[in-house]
Computed example of a mutant assay.
Amino acid sequence: MKKILKLSLFSFLALGMFSCVDDDNDTLTGDKNVGGLLSVETLAITYAQGSAPTDALSASLSVFQGREKVETVDVYKQYFRLDGSTLLKSNNVLLKSVNFPVENQHESLTFSFNYNELISGVVFEGQPLPADDATLEIGDYWLLTYVAKLTDGRTEHLNVKSTKVNVSCGSFLAGNYSNRTVRTETGAVYTFANDLVTQIADGLYVSSYVGPYYCAGQAPGSANTIQLPAGTRAGYTFSDVCNVIGLDTQNLASAFTNEVRQSAAQKALSNVNPVTGVITVHYSIFFSGNTVERPFVTTLTPL
């Protein structure tokens, strides 16, 4: 009798253990994906203040299509501004609807929009967003959210998946300028009729000339300008961040050990006039093993 009792107890415990394992397996495999899963590939976009209102921005989405499929996605837009510790926000309105082709298991789609579309129908602090983006504040943003419509008639709200469109300073300085450079110690003035400023990255540029210098193959300036014995372009690289001009330490004409530098005080004086487009750059060229400083101020006036 004792052996039978022990066997029965062992059988009961074994059954209990296997039941627990089955329950765990059911828990792990019970929530199977049936398709229609939307992923937001573009999480952040920069909107450069000063862009043309029809310049295109783009964002990308992807889906995993299974038995259920995403047919369309409604894209909503809402505008935000942080005022101290208070987050101000606009109404939440439809930006556009985009269609998925529903052909492959993995589908990707890129949709485009512009400033005119971003502001359409948006009311912020009782007023529509302005047609001129100059009154937007740097750091404001639109938040794009997505609602997927599936083939079974359901809609899936994706509040945690969004795209942030950040308002930032735009920089559009590439072009032709007249160059007037003053050596502040002596008052000597050097001029170049056409200083071509070339954009090499977002907000990053290179000028054609520096101080009184030009290279072989470049157009000479006024009678007192000087041709360098090496190099192909005398200019310096500079950055534009919200109309403040910065110049990192660099070698003269990328060919000499003489440094072109900008102090913190010189940077504070270097700027872009947002109305006239005139660029003013304060900097110094160093000589005698970079121990002797000669400061200059260059004024670039758009042609």
Rank of each mutant, 00 (worst) to 15 (best):
Y79K: 02
N290E: 06
N116D: 02
Y209H: 03
G187S: 06
G84K: 06
E107W: 04
I245R: 01
Q65G: 05
A188L: 12
T298A: 04
V189E: 11
K69S: 09
R294P: 08
V241H: 07
T301E: 08
T184A: 09
G139Y: 06
G36L: 11
V206P: 00
Q250S: 05
F80Y: 15
S254K: 13
T280P: 04
K267D: 00
T29M: 12
P53C: 08
G84I: 00
G217F: 02
L13V: 13
T276D: 07
T232N: 14
V260K: 03
N179Y: 15
V70S: 00
F111D: 07
L269K: 01
L143N: 04
T72L: 06
P212G: 03
D195A: 07
V197M: 09
L9M: 13
F287G: 00
A268N: 05
K3A: 11
G175Y: 11
A268G: 07
V73Y: 03
N224L: 02
F10Q: 04
N194F: 06
E117S: 13
G84S: 04
K161I: 13
S62M: 08
I285V: 11
A193G: 15
S85M: 07
N179I: 02
I45L: 13
V165A: 06
G16H: 01
G35P: 07
G50C: 05
V73H: 03
T145E: 08
N166T: 08
D240T: 14
E125Q: 12
Y146C: 05
D74V: 09
V241K: 14
A56H: 07
S178Q: 14
T276Q: 07
P302V: 05
G203M: 04
P130G: 06
N166D: 14
Y283N: 08
S263L: 11
T181G: 06
K6D: 13
D240F: 07
D74K: 12
Q262C: 02
V292W: 01
T86H: 10
L129A: 04
T291K: 01
T299L: 05
V182N: 04
S254M: 09
L158E: 02
V160P: 12
D23Q: 12
F12T: 15
S288Q: 15
F111M: 01
L109N: 00
D152S: 14
S178A: 01
V272T: 05
L87P: 00
E68V: 15
P274W: 14
T249N: 08
I245C: 00
S239D: 06
L43V: 05
N114E: 05
L252V: 14
G217V: 05
N166H: 13
G246T: 08
A219D: 03
G30C: 04
D22H: 09
V297H: 00
T249V: 11
V21I: 15
T301K: 01
L87R: 10
N33T: 12
Q266L: 10
P295S: 02
T29C: 04
N92I: 07
S97G: 15
Y141R: 05
F238P: 00
P220Q: 11
D140Q: 15
G277P: 02
S60H: 06
D202N: 11
S168H: 08
K3F: 02
G289A: 03
